[in-house]
């Protein structure tokens, strides 16, 4: 019971932050963000005994990043998303910057994760490297390439709109 009450307290305190991060990682796909958050919290529940005292926040964030990277290579996600009726609103409604969000969506998943964690979540390079399981040099190169791709995508979109 103590296990469960502690877990509940963690979810109450941190769920919204995880969902916000998931929404950034998915480039505004709120339904997928909710799925990833739920999957992350299931993993956390299963490992609560080991991580509850000192590492729950870090574990949850890392699990969320892994869930995001994993979902791109798992077709079972498509089945889990099937519904009887179409959603009554667009999945990316309410995003503040649709052009930039669209450009983010076009990035490969690990590059997108590096850009989002570094520049949207504003995490230090070292922490991003820890979350992605790579070196700080890789984070720097991925974010630099990601920013260049975003810029190129935005320019292309602007040129298309102006022509």
């Amino acid at each position: 019971m103590r296990h469960q009450s502690e877990y509940e307290a963690f979810v109450r305190a941190h769920r919204a932050e995880l969902l916000a991060t998931a929404t950034s990682l998915t480039a505004g796909d709120r339904h997928l963000a909710e799925d990833l958050t739920q999957a992350t919290l299931v993993r956390l529940y299963l490992h609560w005994g080991r991580v509850r005292e000192t590492k729950a926040g870090a574990y949850a964030r890392r699990a969320l990043v892994n869930c995001f990277l994993d979902h791109r290579r798992r077709a079972w996600v498509r089945r889990e998303h099937s519904v009887d009726a179409p959603p009554d609103r667009a999945v990316d409604d309410g995003v503040d910057d649709p052009e930039l969000t669209g450009a983010l969506r076009a990035l490969p998943p690990r590059m997108r994760a590096a850009v989002v964690l570094r520049h949207v979540e504003d995490l230090p390079v070292e922490e991003v490297a820890g979350l992605l399981g790579c070196s700080t040099g890789t984070v720097k190169s991925q974010t630099a390439r990601g920013l260049a791709k975003l810029r190129a995508h935005l320019l292309e979109t602007a040129n298309r709109g102006g022509s």
């Binding site: 979810v11 109450r12 769920r15 919204a16 932050e17 969902l19 916000a20 991060t21 929404t23 950034s24 995003v95 503040d96 910057d97 930039l100 969000t101 983010l104 850009v115 989002v116 520049h119 949207v120 979540e121 504003d122 920013l147 260049a148 975003l150 810029r151 935005l154």
Partner: peptide, 18 residues
Amino acid sequence: HHEIEGRLRTLRPAPGPT
């Protein structure tokens, strides 16, 4: 690049209530 970084920082949605 700095302009894009600035725009990226505004993308994070504000956490809502749980």
